[in-house]
């Protein structure tokens, strides 16, 4: 038994604390440190305004031009990675985000209503596309 001040800890408490710390560490290990938990990135998914999502394979290099409300946005696919290379918006957050490399990576250009994300063959459709 362990006492801190007037509080007595019983063996069951110590067991619970131990289990809680194991649980916490385990959660960190699955959600933060396991590489490629979603599989290899294979598909670039582009959600543009109200259109149905477009999908491009990452194995072919190409440049996608999307004419949005405020101007053109250019998305580049190269060597299995994707990025925004040009945007008409003021803040350029999407361009500064740089390359998307692993499945699950995503970035967006809100002024032009574009969001892009990488998918693996394993990952199914997430719910964002379905929500209005």
């Amino acid at each position: 038994m362990l006492t801190i001040g007037k509080v007595i800890f019983k063996p069951a408490d110590i067991l619970i604390l131990f289990a809680a710390s194991i649980l916490t560490l385990w959660l960190y290990s699955i959600f933060w440190f396991s590489a490629n938990q979603q599989g290899e990135a294979e598909i670039l998914r582009v959600q543009f305004a109200d259109n149905p999502p477009l999908e491009y394979t990452l194995s072919e290099d190409r440049t996608i031009v999307l004419a949005g409300k405020i101007g053109d946005s250019l998305i580049e696919i190269k060597q299995g990675k994707a990025r925004f290379i040009h945007s008409a918006c003021r803040n350029q957050f999407c361009v500064f985000h740089g390359w998307l490399t692993v499945a699950g990576d995503s970035t967006a250009c809100l002024p032009n209503r574009i969001s892009i994300s990488l998918k693996s063959a394993l990952s199914d459709y997430d719910a964002i596309a379905g929500s209005q």
């Binding site: 509080v7 007595i8 800890f9 019983k10 069951a12 408490d13 067991l15 619970i16 604390l17 809680a20």
Partner: peptide, 11 residues
């Protein structure tokens, strides 16, 4: 043997 408030609180 049941846990004290500490164990219960963490759970």
């Amino acid at each position: 043997h049941q846990p004290s408030a500490l164990g219960y609180a963490v759970i």
